[in-house]
Design a protein around this nucleic acid. Structure first.
Lengths: 183, 183
DNA sequence: GTCTATAATTGGATAGAC
DNA sequence: GTCTATCCAATTATAGAC
């Protein structure tokens, strides 16, 4: 416990589970695989975290990271938000996908809704004004989520082959109209 | 076999599997449950369809339905496309979700990509002109998919409580700009 | 075509010694 | 905190009688 190099077994299990769940999802990962990857006995996985699903919920959290959106200038926030999504770390992206694919489970669906709100809806909603700000924030978040869906769930080849700067410009311009309507 | 009232066992299995896969997904449905729901022996499920995953791929197809999009006037196609999505039958919607949640499996991911192309990309692409038509069709399909994502995967409560006509108007107007750019 | 029986494996989770 | 051993239920899939 006094040395900084060795992690505790609990932390090794947490790290192994995080990687496996991101890579193969909840159903595709077994408790035994987690134990093996952590060089720990499978029984310790349950002992430390209660159950496989609790461990999944414990590890599959999307961090609000740096959240540069709260500081972006309002008149460029459409582009900033698209760039924010495109610049997701692999960790954030794969965690999002694991939650999305596991969202048949109610507890996981709740967590996905949380992630969607924290990362997409809230930063947008905070900057919007007007009577329909709530609706516009919801639509804007859907629009951003559509990129996540098309690029990383569906894997649209046209979009995957397109420069990020082009997507930022074109898609961001549409998003901007929900942020600062011109009508 | 001369009467029209009784389905064959194979058809009963197909029908039961379709309903269960839509409702609980691939991982959440067992061969035994399918057999029980079809009043057939579980072994027949494998005998007739090869494996659980083959049966999933056999049953989880999205039909192009009526496809009203190919006839919609171009200058209203943004709204038409959004309405097209919002009017999905329960069958189409839940099949889409089953594919989406099962898309960790490569074969299922391929099927999801097919569905995305057939229902969203192709009808849009067919009507677009210009050098960047391919890109605009891809972005437009992403935008439409974002609504699917926000409403039915994430379950955004604000959007779920919003009149479809409002979503058609506001979101459709954005989509229209990719279909008939004004710049 | 259908069903009985079961193979062969794997799953999550637990008891209890150390 | 850790590990050995194991329980028990569930899984997909198959073999073979009828």
């Amino acid at each position: 416990m006094a040395d900084g190099g060795a992690e505790s077994t609990q932390e090794r299990i947490r790290a192994a589970a995080t990687a496996l769940f991101r890579d193969r999802g909840l159903a595709g990962t077994s408790v035994r695989q987690i134990g093996a990857a952590a060089s720990a006995d499978p029984s310790l996985v349950i002992r430390h975290f209660g159950s496989k699903e609790l461990l999944f919920l414990e590890t599959m959290r999307v961090e609000a990271e740096h959240q540069p959106l709260f500081d972006a200038p309002l008149n460029d926030m459409g582009r900033s938000t698209v760039r924010f999504l495109l610049d997701f770390t692999d960790a954030t992206r794969s965690t999002f996908l694991a939650l999305l694919r596991g969202s048949n489970e109610p507890a996981i669906a709740d967590r996905l809704l949380d992630a969607h709100r924290d990362l997409f809806v809230a930063p947008l909603r905070a900057r919007l004004t007007g009577p329909d700000a709530e609706l516009r924030a919801g639509l804007a978040a859907a629009l951003v989520g559509g990129l996540l869906y098309a690029l990383w769930v569906v894997g649209d080849e046209t979009l995957l082959a397109t420069d990020h700067s082009v997507i930022v410009d074109r898609y961001g311009a549409l998003l901007q109209q929900l942020i600062t309507p011109t009508v």
